[in-house]
Amino acid sequence: MTAFVTLWGVYSTPDFSSKFGGVDRSRDQDLMTTSRALDQFLSSVERRAFKIAQLGLRNDDDALDAVQDAMMKLVQSYASRPVEEWRPLFYRILANGIRDMQRRRTVRGRIMAWLPIRVDEDEEFDPIAEAPSQDAGPAKRLELDQAIGVLETAVAELPPRQQQAFLLRNFEGLDVNETASAMGCSEGSVKTHYFRALESLRAKLGEVF
């Protein structure tokens, strides 16, 4: 019993902990810092990422899956990368996920391209969940509703690369270099896709906007 108490005492001493547990404590702190930074980063992008995926996939559940996959992959593979690299990496992963999903359901996608964004009719209507987060006057709200509907339809109908360039540059606010990194193409291609996207949207929305 004395031996056990002695051994326990040695194990519990600060000296032992500093030698054998110090590395772990430091690692725990690093992990906590990284976790906090990732949480902050993911919260800052999740809503826009969902919107981008929703416009690309035209399905809320698929969009949520794509965003979750992108979050998982970023944390799994790139958590140790510098924070400033996370945004282009995250959108690169998301863009790849969206493209893979689009490829998997090409036929279905072609049909749905002519339909409005799907609303799950099976789900029960929850007035609290469905309530808008911000209130506005009825006229302003109607105007915004129309603008959102028209713009989202027009964006959803853009060719995938133009859509990506437009959403990453204009909506997410990435610069040309970050957008090129996220799209896996040259900066020149980004400029071309973005310019064409703007031209196409102007042609469709000119009167509304």
């Binding site: 826009r48 919107k51 929850d126 959102i148 713009l151 204009n170 909506f171």
Partner: peptide
Amino acid sequence: FEKRTREVLEESTARLDGR
């Protein structure tokens, strides 16, 4: 035009439902 489209998309994002 770019500003306006961005504002509209931001508004749409702000309206995401609770679910």
